[in-house]
Nucleic acid binder design. Structure first.
Lengths: 252, 252
DNA sequence: CGTAAACGGTGATGTCGGTCAGCCTAATCT
DNA sequence: AGATTAGGCTGACCGACATCACCGTTTACG
């Protein structure tokens, strides 16, 4: 379905930590090469998920924690009547499934946007691992704190920006975030597995209105979406339309 | 201005950790009595702030981290044109000022809602303290992770709920949160230092519309706001109006 | 190969919440 | 005591975004 899918599905091998390509952005960043066996022994294996499948659902008990190795996901919440809010677009290197009380039920769901490969940590003894390796605990705190920042940004957008500003801000933020992780050869475009409905659910808009807004931005020559790729044609004017804050770029 | 103000302003003494009344909810929760001197030595003192003053502002370098000892605050972000989004209502015990990169500039501001007393930690060596005391690092992670959950909830409200649902959900959530911390003798009311404008800025609404919504809820006998106090008259019907999720109560 | 989803796209119409404008009261300042 | 300000409150009007309804294209699948 998506270009990265073919190579993933079916392969059963487990990525070795020494060959982990997202180590620099993930939880294990502070682990030295010679200590790598600590996490390697802790790791429960890999897990592969097809696009569209849920990794976990709100209300389930938490069993495992994950680092995304390949592919994109998103975190979301559902209201009783089916309204959906997407809280985060998850990229390779992101750590998902952690919550303050690991015994508690999950308060959100996670779904694969593309086919996905995950590094699985067991929930049990995860805190012990952190206790034994304070660098890991501190790294985890930083990752989570970064999530808070991104959440605050998104909340500010949804609460206070117009639809046009929101869409522009979202696309630009995603663009820089993806590029910072070198997911793609640098260029003015990134893969775009999100549908207009996903974008709407992330921004508190309907897909109809996202469509119109996107068309405006396209008509004005700011962006182009084609073949599941997003092209930023005029970053400056897009940043303008977004009221984009340069400062927020330092943060991966 | 607010009832708790008189006793705070002017007093210069520093709260001793052994007498700290928010220890159970704050960062220091895992610290044993006999280890308390570790944080006591680290602590830089107390700081007192009047209602309406900023503790720090977006764009400033981070110098200190704080635990709120008394009073309420809020975290917020401003857009260039002055639109404001309130990201969190801060209660006693909450830890504020932490961010993933302690060297970076602050990405949000914090303002006192009432007169406030804070426990001040220096930013420098804070990570070393955490490295030396993994329990502290883990506790910090949990506090921050809890922030993420609350952020996601708020985002879901602002993105997907109607004004009426948002207001009901906000008030009910605040009510339970305040009560869980035993801030008040149990009863159907809590202090309410927020103006309608604050509520609007927290929920992505104008104060005008908050006013109308509040009046509806009052007319229907669900709530009452008087003398800077919020009274929950009919929790069940309010939860109904909010589409309130019982599950989200376990989390302080 | 034919059919059904899934997704993008678009017009007509409706409404929720914003904007503007102004009043009232209580608290604070001089 | 009078003036000023912050906050609550309300009506008239408006517009941004939602809703509904429908079409066309591409992809997946029996």
């Amino acid at each position: 379905m998506h270009n990265s899918s073919a190579p993933l599905i079916g392969k059963k091998y487990t990525v070795r930590c020494s060959a982990c390509r997202v180590r620099g952005w993930g939880l294990c960043e502070p682990i030295h090469d010679d200590e790598l066996d600590v996490v390697e022994r802790f790791k429960a294996g890999d897990k592969v998920l097809e696009a569209g499948q849920d990794l976990f659902r709100e209300g389930e008990p938490s069993r495992e924690l994950y680092t995304v190795l390949e592919g994109w996901m998103f975190l979301y919440k559902l209201l009783e009547d089916g309204r959906r809010q997407i809280a985060k677009i998850v990229l390779p290197g992101d750590f998902v499934g952690f919550q303050p009380d690991l015994e508690a039920l999950l308060d959100h769901s996670a779904q694969a946007l593309t086919d996905v490969r995950l590094c699985v940590f067991p929930r049990d003894n995860f805190l012990e691992l952190n206790r034994a390796h304070p660098e890991l605990a501190i790294r985890l705190t930083c990752l989570v704190a970064h999530d808070v920042e991104m959440s605050r940004d998104r909340l500010t957008s949804v609460g206070r920006r117009s639809a046009r500003e929101r869409v522009a801000h979202f696309l630009l933020g995603l663009f820089y975030r993806v590029r910072l992780r070198h997911q793609e050869p640098r260029g003015a475009s990134i893969p775009m597995p999100l549908t207009q409905e996903h974008i709407g659910d992330a921004l508190g808009l309907t897909s109809v209105h996202v469509n119109r807004t996107l068309r405006n931005l396209r008509d004005e020559g700011l962006i182009e979406i084609a073949n599941r790729r997003l092209h930023i044609l005029d970053p400056d004017r897009l940043a303008d339309a977004a009221g984009f804050d340069e400062d927020s770029l330092g943060r991966t």
